[in-house]
C-alpha cells in the first residue's frame, strides 16, 4: 500500500484518483437507483447491473481521451456513464422516456452516446468485438490517433466473433484494446465449467501473438495503469491488447436472476473486496481528507436524485419516432 508521502508524487496523482473515485461512485449510485426503480416497476424489460465491476469502467474511461471510442455490452450502463453520458439520459432510457439517450428506442441493453464516444451497447455476445476493430481500422487508415476500447464478459471468450476479431486485429496491428471483464460467471454458469483454460481471455492471447495480461479489476489504479499502457502501445502503432480484468458482479446476471448458483463463501470473499470501499481507503491512505471524499459521495447522490426526478418528469417518447430513422434521410420508406 502506498504511503501518504507519495500523495503528489506517484504515477497517477490526486486529481486522477479523485476522478476515478467519482466515476466509480457515479456508476454505483446510478446502478443502485436503477435497481430501486425496477422494484417500483418504473423500469421495464430486463437490465444487467454492473454493481461490483465499477473500477473497470472508471479506470478505462478515465484513461481515455476525447475522440476515443468505447464499445460495450448489454451490461453497459456504467461504461456509457463513465464516458460522460448524462445520468438523466441513462435513467430516462431505462425508463422509456423522451429524455432517454435513445429517446426510448433502444432500451437498457443499447445505451449509446456518440457525442461522448460511447459507440453503443451490443446485446448479442461477441458482435461488438469486430465492430470496435472496424473503428480502429478507421483510426489506422486516417492516422488520427484514436483508440477503440471494447468491453465484454468472460462468456464472450468462447464465441467465434471473439477469435475472429482478435486474429484480424492482431494481424492488421489495429489500435484496439479488448477488455474482458471476468466476473467468473457466464450468465448462470461458472466460466470454469465451460472453458478449457483457467484464464478465459488471457490464456487465449498467445494464440494471437499477444501478451497475457491479467489485472485486478477491483482496483481502479491497476485498471487505469493497464489502460494507459495499452493505449500508449495502440497509439504508437503497436497494435491491439487483450486485458483480462478479474472482478465480480454483486447481483445476478439480470433482473430475473437472484444469483443463487454462487457459493456463499465466494460471494462473501468478493463482497469484502468491493472496489469502492477499497478505493475509498486508498484515498485516505494517500492523505485525501474524509471531508473531500464525503463531498464527492454527496454530490453524486444529489446528481442521481436530480436525474431520477428529471427522468420521472419526462413524458413518454413521441409516437412519431416509431417510423423515424430507419434510413439516413430520417424516414422508413421501403417503396415508392
Amino acid at each position: 500500500m502506498a504511503k501518504k508521502t507519495e500523495k503528489n508524487n506517484d504515477d497517477i496523482g490526486e486529481d486522477v484518483r479523485l476522478a476515478l473515485y467519482r466515476s466509480q461512485q457515479e456508476v454505483r449510485q446510478l446502478e443502485k437507483r436503477a435497481y430501486d426503480l425496477f422494484l417500483q416497476n418504473l423500469i421495464k424489460g430486463t437490465s444487467h447491473l454492473c454493481i461490483g465491476q465499477e473500477a473497470i469502467a472508471a479506470g478505462f474511461a478515465t484513461a481515455m481521451k476525447p475522440g476515443d471510442w468505447s464499445f460495450c455490452t448489454y451490461r453497459g450502463h456504467g461504461h456509457t456513464l463513465a464516458r460522460g453520458a448524462s445520468m438523466t439520459g441513462v435513467l430516462g432510457e431505462l425508463m422509456g422516456r423522451e429524455c432517454g439517450l435513445l429517446a426510448g428506442k433502444g432500451g437498457s441493453m443499447h445505451l449509446t452516446d456518440v457525442e461522448k464516444g460511447a459507440m453503443g451497447s451490443y446485446a448479442i455476445i461477441g458482435a461488438h468485438l469486430p465492430i470496435a476493430m472496424g473503428a480502429a481500422w478507421k483510426a489506422q487508415y486516417k492516422k488520427t490517433g484514436e483508440v477503440a476500447v471494447c468491453f465484454f464478459g468472460d462468456g464472450t471468450t468462447n464465441i467465434g466473433a471473439f477469435h475472429e476479431a482478435l486474429s484480424m486485429s492482431a494481424t492488421w496491428k489495429l489500435p484496439v484494446v479488448f477488455v474482458c471483464e471476468n466476473n467468473l460467471y457466464m450468465e448462470y454458469t461458472s466460466i470454469g465449467d465451460v472453458t478449457p483454460v483457467e484464464h478465459p481471455a488471457a490464456d487465449r492471447a498467445p494464440a494471437y501473438g499477444l501478451p497475457k495480461i491479467i489485472v485486478d479489476g477491483n482496483d481502479a489504479d491497476a485498471v487505469y495503469r493497464a489502460a494507459r499502457t495499452a493505449f500508449d502501445l495502440a497509439r504508437a502503432g503497436g497494435g491491439p491488447s487483450l486485458i483480462e480484468a478479474k472482478t465480480y458482479r454483486h447481483h445476478g446476471h439480470s433482473r430475473a436472476d437472484p444469483g443463487k448458483y454462487r457459493p456463499d463463501d465466494e460471494v462473501k470473499a468478493w463482497m469484502a473486496r468491493d472496489p469502492i470501499p477499497f478505493y475509498r481507503q486508498r484515498l485516505l491512505d494517500f492523505g485525501v481528507s474524509e471531508a473531500s471524499i464525503t463531498a464527492i459521495e454527496e454530490e453524486v447522490a444529489a446528481a442521481v436524485n436530480v436525474a431520477t426526478e428529471e427522468a420521472k418528469a419526462s413524458p413518454p417518447p413521441s409516437q412519431d419516432l416509431i417510423l423515424k430513422d430507419v434510413w439516413a434521410d430520417g424516414g422508413w420508406a421501403w417503396r415508392n
Binding site: 469486430p130 476493430m133 473503428a135 478507421k138 475472429e164 486474429s167
Partner: peptide
C-alpha cells in the same frame, strides 16, 4: 494495400470491421 485489404476467412470480422469503419466516417 491500405485501401484494398485481404482478410482472413472470418466473415464476422469482415462485416464487423465494415460496420465499425462506417460508423466512424469511412465508406467501406
Amino acid at each position: 494495400p491500405e485501401r484494398v485489404r485481404d482478410t482472413p476467412i472470418a466473415e464476422q470480422a469482415i462485416l464487423g470491421a465494415a460496420m465499425g469503419a462506417a460508423m466512424t466516417g469511412l465508406r467501406p
